[in-house]
Amino acid sequence: MMRHTGTGQGRAAARTVEVRSWLLSLLLIPLLLPPAARAHSASDAYLNLIVHSHGADGQIAVEGQWDIALRDLDFVLRLDEDGDGRLTWGEVRSRQDAIERYAYASLHFDGGPGDACVIKPGRLMIDEHADGAYAVLSFNVLCARAPRKLALDYRMFFPIDPSHRGILVEHDGADIATAVLSPENTRIDLIR
């Protein structure tokens, strides 16, 4: 710390400089710590889809299971109602509607021109992942006609966290494929 000497006006001026200097420090310091301080777990959600193809007419049915971190949902929906930092099943369950509204507003299935598809929500469950507890949303995709093509559009959390990633895992018969959904990659053709 620098010491300032002097009297009267001079000292007052020096004190101002000193305070301003520390105000600057206050703004700077949080950013000074080495980047090694990071911990790595950014936000991921897991979207598991099972695609069933039926018969020769090529009809398709899709079942989904969507795992979304409770931490992420709490950040946008403030699920921890009593604010004690411990999110209970009661707090999650009582906000099921809000969770589903928020989630399904950011996931759309498109069966091509004239074939809008809707999501029919199923039950809400919980799953433990390596980085914490996740809400598990189960759903079926219902289309006006059986689609021959199907694309999905995913924008979960992107407006508030562009580093969020949707990890899509598609199960089609014995095949498993994955894709990463990001703000740069919001649309995936499930069936071309």
């Binding site: 299971q65 795992d67 409770l70 931490r71 709490d74 699920l79 921890d80 604010g83 004690d84 930092g85 411990r86 999110l87 209970t88 099943w89 009661g90 999650v92 369950r93 039950r123 469950m125 919980i126 799953d127 433990e128 992942h129 390596a130 914490g132 507890a133 598990v136």
Partner: peptide, 24 residues
């Protein structure tokens, strides 16, 4: 087995996840 399959918690009081506390 540390990871269960998706499950329905048996009680409303079950704590699922620590989150940042509003009192912090």
């Amino acid at each position: 087995a540390a990871f269960k399959a998706p499950y329905l918690p048996s009680s409303d009081a079950e704590v699922l996840q620590d989150v940042p506390s509003a009192t912090d």
